[in-house]
Design a protein around this nucleic acid. Structure first.
Lengths: 240, 240
DNA sequence: AAATATAAAACAATCGATTGATTAAATCAA
DNA sequence: TTGATTTAATCAATCGATTGTTTTATATTT
């Protein structure tokens, strides 16, 4: 459908302003309303550019949407990819043991949970991604291969080492999926949680509280005692 | 917006056919494509009725959507509500103990997981609900109060008794949310799981396998040994 | 001057909603 | 049970508004 899946025109550096404004505005708008939920005219107005710019730079609405998702994954999701890289580095640096893996798993899930509940870009990723789950477009592959698959694989590896099972066993991957999903869930189903708890928003303190509980349940789920790991982790910075 | 939020006209029993056909077609269509993702003409064609019937019976597209959700929750979600009622009955019939609560929690999550992954109506509920989570409309309240809140409350109660904590404590509710969310997640994020596992669909056998793993993790998460509970549960019908 | 970028206007297509006419059914007087 | 009248339901045709896209013209930069 989209005309130019290659690179964006930008023959000279002067149209970069409009492109950048469109990409920025698109992240917010598409995350909030979805591809079909917002009109090109509103998108252009939000970006402060003319409607024709969408077709001019991206070939159309679909190409624009795809470019926004690509931008979101490649540029804005850096903190998430850094997190993956950090844990992966620590994993290869330490000797392999269930305790180490569990500790890293705990760290990863905790950090990811807070990031996904609070960080603006992560919220956008989660929103678009959950929409793409229900009705996948080309954008699904971009997000999946860009952030989901690496994350999923890393968690699977940590789960495998923590439970002493093969990392490619269906059981291991299903477990990893459940753990990762828990984290995403507090973003996707935040409305329900807030209603149940009488909250209006999820503040920073609340997000950290939730992250601790998630981490604890995750550790128990892979068969290890949370307190042991947590006390040697950051000196027991929390006790829920 | 919608004209008549009260009852549907249906002055005589003759128009019931059209209404029923519209409600049936609407469940599928709205679950698949969302409110904005499908046109009234397609909806009418799918139902085999004239476009004007939508405005005639429901006052408009929004009223139609709301009626579909109401129908879905009130009529089609009966198996889910029956499940809640069954567990609730068994809970009040047995004496209060962490073991009993954990066993019931396991049963509930296991049955719910299979239902939500396989049963057609439950899939529709999960799809519409997850959409309403991201961008709530009036339909959110209908689903929330009809099935989510009762389910959430019951799980909270079971978690509270299993962990010997107050049922209205934030920690308890957050735990319940995570457990319930895990189950929903395998429906919402089934695309990712299937891709990771090289599956095309989630078959009955696979759904039951997943349900077992979820139940095991849930039991561990609330601090009990899965094997003890499962062996006294249904005579060890599964061993993953 | 040539290439690139922006802007306003117009494009065909589709959206949800409505119209007036027609058909089917129910109601009631005889 | 009739036949006349009213009500309910269905239909094709059409409404104005809005959709994504395109065109045409103008401005800016190289």
């Amino acid at each position: 459908m989209a005309k130019n899946l290659e690179s964006i025109p930008r023959k000279s550096g002067r149209g970069g302003k409009a492109i950048a404004r469109l990409l920025d505005a698109g992240v917010d708008a598409f995350a909030r309303y979805g591809l079909e939920g917002i009109a090109t005219r509103q998108l252009a107005k939000a970006a402060g550019v003319n409607v024709a710019a969408i077709a001019y730079y991206f070939g159309g609405k679909e190409g624009y949407y795809l470019a926004v998702v690509r931008h979101l994954v490649q540029e804005r999701a850096k903190p998430v990819r850094d997190l993956i890289e950090r844990i992966r580095g620590e994993l290869s640096a330490s000797r392999e043991s269930p305790e180490t893996s569990a500790r890293l798993l705990l760290q990863l899930l905790q950090d990811l949970a807070v990031t996904i509940m609070l960080k603006h870009d992560a919220v956008a990723i989660a929103s678009i991604f959950s929409r793409e789950q229900l009705r996948p477009t080309d954008a699904f592959d971009v997000i999946y291969e860009g952030v989901i698959q690496p994350m999923h694989q890393l968690v699977s590896q940590l789960v495998a080492q923590a439970t002493r099972k093969p990392p490619d066993a269906p059981e291991t991957i299903i477990r990893a999926h459940a753990l990762l999903g828990q984290v995403f869930l507090f973003r996707i189903a935040g409305t329900t949680l807030c209603r149940r708890l009488g909250w209006k928003h999820i503040t920073k303190a609340r997000a950290e509280h939730i992250a601790n509980i998630i981490a604890e349940m995750a550790c128990r789920a892979v068969g290890l005692d949370f307190r042991q790991i947590d006390s040697e982790n950051t000196g027991g910075r929390d006790e829920t």
